[in-house]
Simulated assay, not measured.
Amino acid sequence: MKINEIIRQKRTEKGYTQEQIASFLGVSAPAVNKWEKAISYPDITLLPALARLLGTDLNTLLSFQDDLTKEEIGIFINELVSIADTEGIDAAFHMAQDKLHEYPTCDLLLLNTALTLEGLIIMSKTTVQNCRYAADIEEMYTRASKSCDPAVSSHAKAMLISKHRKRKEFDAARRLLNELPDTTLYNKKQLEATLCQEEGNLEQAAQIIEGKILSEISGVQSALFTLVEIAVKEHHLSEAEQLTEIAKETGRLFDLWDCNSHIADFQLAVAQRDTGECLRALEKMLPGLCQEWKPDHSPLYLHLSMKGTNMGSRMLSGILNELEDTENHEYDFLREDTRIQNLLDQYHSAVKMP
């Protein structure tokens, strides 16, 4: 709450009128009224007496809080996504700026806000590079990269490395890469899960291990997809096909989002300029994006509490825009096929286009 709201709430709890507060502090009743309406604020010399009078401390009165908790950040991020859905990316960006101004030293908030805004933009019609907020988001990552929290700093640096790489700023990317820490010799998550198990907290132990499995196997599948891209660029299409099948089988074995497999098939078909295979992949991929992935329905992730999101529909929107973007010449051969165009037209009505 803001100071005006706190003054009003604490005054009401104490049963004081505005006139009584004014009398106790030696100010006018209209002055107190203006404080509570946020028209003006108490003189700094009055703050200690006002806090004592209201039965609170200066930190509470001034709404001072060092940092938000992870839970509070999670709630804010969900609100940010909702605002983007209902009012657009501009409203979400201004909401993010207000929060960051309120908590300028909360590095975890800074990083998650940048990641969320970038994700929202990627799923919209505008590419991050061409978005007017691109420089602001990159500045958020730059600030977060200087965090004293190693996890926040490393994640932010990884995002900056990706941006430098895309701009072919390889020296800058290499400098940041050299600053990233090597993997530790022990696995903290595994140690924590073992400790929880020995303490008898089996549910928490399972949550930790399931989260570890989901994170690490997603990383393995992502790495396999990267190998597919490399094989395609090296014109080793047979190896690319084998790697794609391995990545898909990995997803099936570990109950990952099935849509990833269809995306891999589509990208491979695009590399081969095979219109028929592209169509078959799209016929599976597009409906898959409309279905919610529920990892906690798998025996591998029973203890994970994962709320459903509309990320699939956001990806669907982004993919449709990318396929129909005439400036993206990678898909020119697909736009000439009426079957694919008809399929894309069907799904435009399935998403709320920004």
Rank of each mutant, 00 (worst) to 15 (best):
P181C: 05
D258I: 06
C131G: 03
G219A: 01
T184K: 07
V81N: 09
R175W: 05
L256C: 08
D67E: 13
T244L: 13
G200T: 10
C259V: 15
M95I: 02
L100A: 11
L80H: 02
H348L: 00
G55R: 09
N112K: 13
H329R: 14
R143V: 12
L180E: 06
R314P: 00
A31T: 15
E199V: 04
C290I: 06
W257C: 13
A31P: 01
L117S: 07
L80K: 02
E277Y: 03
G88M: 13
S215M: 11
A29P: 01
S153P: 03
L80V: 04
Q346N: 12
H94T: 12
L316D: 02
H164K: 02
L110A: 07
N321Q: 06
A49P: 00
L109D: 05
K212Y: 14
C148R: 07
T116A: 14
C278G: 06
G219Q: 02
V228Q: 03
Q9D: 12
N321L: 09
Y347V: 04
E322V: 07
E203G: 03
H101E: 14
L202P: 00
I230C: 05
L334Y: 02
S147I: 09
T338P: 01
F76V: 09
H155P: 00
K166C: 06
L115A: 05
P150K: 03
A205M: 10
A84N: 12
L286H: 05
L253A: 14
L109K: 07
F225C: 08
T250P: 05
E241N: 12
F333T: 03
L46I: 08
G211R: 03
R8C: 09
T244Q: 15
S313K: 15
T309P: 05
L237A: 07
V351S: 05
H329F: 05
Q267H: 14
K37H: 08
R52S: 15
Q65D: 08
L344Q: 02
Y16W: 06
A114P: 01
T105N: 11
A31I: 11
A223Q: 09
E249G: 04
E241Y: 07
D258H: 10
K146L: 11
T127E: 14
L282S: 06
D258E: 12
S218C: 07
S222R: 11
N59K: 10
L268M: 04
E330N: 09
H235C: 08
A350C: 14
T142A: 11
L180H: 08
N342H: 14
L54F: 06
D325Y: 04
